[in-house]
């Protein structure tokens, strides 16, 4: 393609280029945050964490980021998370320490609660203080009905349809809910976890985050949807699950509820990723969603509700909370 582009340019452009001294307004460097709060998890760097890095001018080299070892993160920031009530009054506070294992800030005493609001405050020398507020949503409530196991979990070469079932979500009518659905197969003996692809045909899955085909069918391993079309009702989705190759002993469904900010952040990230490096169908610049005041990034709450299917040849079998 590069060669073709070269020929194309030879044909069309008698272009010349010159270095340009652009006066980009100098913005003060700010902090960039990547932080997730998973309900009932602990801040240990796996699912709940705070990463702190800095921004630099668009014309500066990557060398100008702050580094810890060779990782572009700041290790001397003061990071605090406050549990607050509806009036933004502090109910509890936690100071997070830099953890060289994950290069992020953790505090194992902090376990985010569902339906609870948290405020993040970060101070670092040379950067404006930042803060962010987000609410960890309630764990989603759902049931599995009309389940049919169609394939073989423990046959290595089998990669067809494994099961089909209805996922029935009991949506909370008083909140805007943002969901993410994943299905995993697990081999307990070697601790191998693989993502399953699944397909579903429903208008709720028609959004910019999901890859749907021309008839509106979603097929993939991680779909996002909102309750915009079924707010406050009991909504059933017919799911067809496919198994990756390999030997597994059970699978589980992970249904996540995301805060609005985290959903928007993921959405804009997906859009940015999908449209970059496309010279012919170039898009306008994308503004990544952020809820960080005076900074960049995301402080996003989420909760998840998992159900596992254990085959009948195990003593405890059927659908279990996971």
């Amino acid at each position: 393609m590069k060669k073709l582009t070269f020929i194309f340019l030879c044909l069309f452009f008698i272009s010349c280029e010159e270095n340009l001294n652009i006066d980009i307004p100098i913005d003060k460097s700010r902090l960039s945050i990547t932080s997730n709060l998973l309900a009932d998890d602990y801040f240990n760097g796996q699912y709940s964490y705070v990463y702190v890095s800095n921004s630099i001018s668009a014309l500066e080299s990557d060398d100008n980021f702050d580094y810890t070892d060779s990782i572009p993160v700041i290790n001397n920031a003061t990071v605090s998370i406050y549990e607050t009530n509806e009036l933004q009054e502090n109910l509890a506070s936690y100071v997070l320490e830099f953890d060289y294992d994950c290069y992020c800030y953790n505090n194992p005493d902090l376990s985010p609660k569902q339906n609870t609001t948290y405020r993040l405050e970060v101070e670092a020398y040379g950067y404006p203080d930042i803060y962010a507020i987000d609410k960890v949503p309630a764990k989603p409530s759902y049931e599995i009905t009309d389940f049919e196991l169609l394939g073989y979990l423990d046959k290595k070469s089998y990669d067809g349809e494994l099961s089909q079932f209805n996922l029935v979500i009991n949506d909370d009518p008083f909140t805007e809910n943002y969901y993410q659905l994943k299905i995993f197969v697990v081999n307990t003996s070697n601790a191998k976890v693989r993502t399953c692809s699944y397909s579903v045909s429903d208008a709720s899955f028609l959004n910019p985050l999901n890859d749907t085909d021309s008839e509106g069918n979603y097929s993939g391993g991680s779909a996002y949807f909102t309750d915009e079309l079924f707010n406050g009702t009991s909504k059933s989705f017919f799911i067809q699950q496919f198994k990756p190759q390999g030997i597994f002993d059970h699978f589980f469904i992970e249904l996540r509820a995301l805060s609005r900010d985290l959903y928007e952040f993921n959405k804009t990230r997906r859009e940015e990723s999908a449209t970059s490096n496309n010279p012919l169908f170039v898009s306008e610049p994308i503004f990544l969603h952020s809820n960080i005041e005076n900074g960049y990034g995301i402080f996003g709450g989420k909760s998840e509700s998992n159900k596992a299917y254990i085959p009948t040849y195990f003593p405890n079998n059927g659908w279990l909370s996971y």
Binding site: Q46, Y51, A58
Partner: peptide, 13 residues
């Protein structure tokens, strides 16, 4: 035109 003014990182595991 719209020009970038800052570059920043999204760091995760």
């Amino acid at each position: 035109i719209t020009l970038p003014r800052q570059q920043y990182l999204i760091v995760s595991q």
